[in-house]
Design a protein around this nucleic acid. Structure first.
Lengths: 340, 340
DNA sequence: GTTAGCACTCAAACCGCCCGACTGCTAACT
DNA sequence: AGTTAGCAGTCGGGCGGTTTGAGTGCTAAC
């Protein structure tokens, strides 16, 4: 448990670092955050905070920068709430109220306004979970490979390819197909994606199918991952304005990661959450993009359709602002959807 | 008219600069391109080529780099044809033949394969020009503004807002609406976009409407510009690998320009051209993105539907490769479309 | 427990130097 | 006249040394 003063100092370091992106010196903290005690005292505190893993010193004659642990602590316990400026709140409302068009238009508008206001990358994912599985078909391509086709009530997903173990013959494939259909037909695609192998339904008799089933299910998971998902992204290059991407190589890496929409969608949606709930993923904690933090909120968009609205920024992100923007936005969206 | 030797030297400078991105020295040219004469001679030639505007010397003790004029000349007259390597040709064919799905899938596949092979940004634009205008409606919003709505046989375009001159009353608006409908109804959207104001149909009596018409038409042009257009882009961040974007600020500017899909689509499509024809726009020649060159080819995708396939790269782009890739691609696409 | 003060460290900016990559020019040569 | 060797001159960029200043840790006194 941290003393009150330690908390204030840690908070000061994080706030200052978020704003200035520079290591924070004891003197700065004293002058602008804690004028009632001396810089020497603060230095002592900083030193213990460092040994506790909250702070990092890039080199001996430099100030401190917050570790990921510090950011986590800041988000969970230190950060005081803030409201958007009136101007910004108005801007958002104005912008979103003008766009009372299709859901797609609103999604686009949301990404734009978030990216503009926060200066970070914004992502919106729409998940339609009403699709149910009609049939699973296995096609022996007779070159040792098998094509796995999954049919849903709204569309056909294809292209799942699996290596076939040598000893498999037509009958066994037919048998495997019967089993798979028995298990999955009529289920929502979403349940299917989260399906956890090995499953109890396979009895001893079919133990030999296990390896094949595992492969097939992995493929199907991958193929169907994006089913019913709509990903909208905006402001990737806003990130280049931040000092962590001062060199092009880092910028390029970031942008390349952003191209993988499946992965981004996965990050935004992998933890459910109630309507309007906010989630923060910092750096290496989850598989957030390298050096980034992701803030997400969820909104329900109707029966079986849910949306995730996210902001991707550097770990040194202005969490207060981002959280309050997302809060405002989700409030508006919930309101907007409720009206219909 | 340039002497044969001047041409060879100019070609050498361009080739070397495309490959290495460094100013080219007389000695290099002599050694790898023109061993039969001395570097001093080449220096003399370089000097005159510079005074003719083909070359630029960044500073006195540096080699020469080609000017845009040189690139133009290179593309038009100097560049020798080249074929793709067998490996690349195969790669393209394989990749595109696998994707015999919807037109959209093919478009996406095309941008991907082009970007991967060339290492530049690739854009595909599909233009459906079959949409005709059914009606134009003017709605007085009675706050000094007017909403312009254009209805086509396939969808409604909205959101065109125009400031209304004070003296306009309901009757005049109705009159204006009648005029606009008379002119535009039944026409293809495409004709409409290129419509050139002022138009002769407005007689003296309606001269007072001119200012308003002009505004309305500008709005409508903008609103309908993207009608029936489908833009697909890939490999924006491939550009960051090239030395012209070594600093982030330039990279950011480039990417910001790329966000404006309307403008990019416009650049790709603003000059018609026969099926399979290739167009090259270099730097400031046309309104290509700053510091970039754009190579485009056109393919017909059916009745009233045409596609533009383009590559956007730095002015110092490998034109030979890009042109041969586009050539190959358009050939395959034409073939593919023809089959159906 | 706090604080002033001091010695110490180190990154970054600065400076002057030299090296080497090129050129332009001149004078000789074909 | 065109070509070429040779040489002086220019300038960017890399290298090493110095200075500066920001910041710390430690110590001793309060």
């Amino acid at each position: 448990m941290l003393s009150e003063r330690k908390k204030r100092i840690l908070c000061a370091v994080v706030d200052s670092y978020i704003e200035k992106a520079n290591p924070v010196a004891s003197k700065d903290i004293q002058e602008t955050y804690l004028p009632e005690c001396s810089s020497a005292t603060i230095r002592n505190e900083l030193s213990t905070l460092e040994s506790m893993g909250y702070l990092i010193q890039p080199h001996v004659s430099a100030g401190r920068i917050p570790s990921e642990k510090a950011f986590r602590f800041y988000v969970n316990e230190l950060m005081y709430e803030s409201n958007l400026s009136v101007r910004e709140a108005e801007l958002i409302e104005q912008y979103l109220n003008r766009k009372v068009g299709s859901l797609e238009e609103v999604m686009t508008a949301v990404t734009h306004i978030i990216a503009e206001i926060t200066n970070y990358t914004s992502v919106v994912v729409k998940e339609d979970m009403s699709d149910t599985i009609t049939a699973i078909k296995l096609l022996d391509l007779s070159n040792g490979k098998m094509l796995v086709v999954i049919v849903t009530d709204s569309r056909v997903l294809k292209d799942g390819m699996v290596d076939l173990p040598d000893e498999f013959n037509e009958n066994m494939i037919a048998q495997a197909q019967r089993w798979l259909n028995k298990i999955f037909c009529g289920k929502h695609v979403k349940e299917f994606i989260n399906f956890d192998y090995p499953f109890a339904l396979v009895n001893d008799e079919f133990a030999q199918y296990n390896a094949l089933f595992k492969k097939i299910i992995d493929v199907l998971k991958k193929v169907s991952l994006m089913n019913g998902m709509d990903v909208e992204m905006y402001g990737e290059n806003k990130m280049l304005a931040h000092s962590e991407y001062a060199n092009v190589e880092d910028a390029r890496k970031f942008l390349t990661q952003m191209e993988n929409k499946e992965r981004i969608a996965e990050i935004l949606t992998n933890d459910g959450g109630a309507d309007g709930s906010l989630t923060v993923k910092i750096g290496s904690e989850e598989n957030a993009p390298e050096g980034c933090a992701v803030v997400t909120t969820r909104v329900s968009l109707g029966e079986n359709v849910s949306g995730s609205i996210g902001v991707i920024g550097p770990v040194r992100m202005n969490y207060r602002k981002v959280l309050s923007v997302l809060d405002k936005i989700s409030e508006i969206i919930i309101d907007l959807v409720g009206k219909e």
